[in-house]
Amino acid sequence: MSNRLEVRNVSKRFSRMSGVVERGAELMGLKAPNPVVRALDDVSLTVAEGEVVGIVGESGCGKSTLGRVVAGLLQASEGSVLFRGKQLDEMPGKSADEARLKVQMIFQDPSSSLNPRQRVREIIGAAPLHHGMTTARELDDYVSQQMQRSGLDPSMAGRFPHQFSGGQRQRIGIARALAVQPDMLICDESVAALDVSIQAQILNLFLDLREQLDLTYLFISHDLSVVEHISDRVMVMYLGRVVEEAAVGELFSHPNHPYTRALLQERPSLDPVQRRFSAIEGEIASPLSPPSGCHFHPRCPMAMERCRVERSELRLIGPGHKSACHLND
């Protein structure tokens, strides 16, 4: 199977831009340079054709940044993103744009991801019209098709987003993304803002669309049950680094990294035997000054001296199962 997407050693740093005066002060040693946030630190990832890869982690772990780098909304500071083996930065402007169009995003908040001043017809139809996927004359039919496919009533194309419910709005967002005929969707917490019953409907829609359109997904979520339901493979992130990666069944039955185990324990459960709830100790550290060595060591019950000093690399510990923990040595 070929790789639909490959992310190679991508890092993303954020820092506030210094003004002229500030830069002068920095040069003269009067002021410390602006702090740098390492949102992504040497992250690699491959997604095979037709695969659904889930990315989990607490808020601030860099999972949304990863999604935006892959979608081309953010430029990586280091590393490269390859689609079907081709690196986008090296492609000429036009074809890079076309390749990027094949990767679309489904956002978290269905109310802010739709322009409140546009009718559904324009929200869905503007991009395919601009990219020549349909003509002005056939636009209404085209939009109707997209709406139907996402489970919307095409007769509502003339309405504004605020006239729809949350689940319907998310369907509009999906129809908008699908209208440019992508082959990969990045779902950034796409069901987090919805009621549980609506969540299930939208997740099933994602799975149906995957069958119909051969879609590949990068599914970003903090909700483990959602990720377990939809993914083939799961990647766990902590403070900008990948800590564990495995097929979904393997990860949920045999979690290796202490952080993954802690996450799985925290999962709310209906099982009456497992009523104890033990939160991971401590707060997630600030990405401005991440802990040395293994980022997780201040909260890890099994931390050793080595964890404080040496960075733990992601390595293979079983077939298709990678983990970044010194305990495996």
Partner: peptide, 12 residues
């Protein structure tokens, strides 16, 4: 707001 990001990713 996310609708601007959406428009960007749609290459409008």
């Amino acid at each position: 707001r996310e609708y601007v990001e959406a428009a960007r990713s749609l290459r409008l």
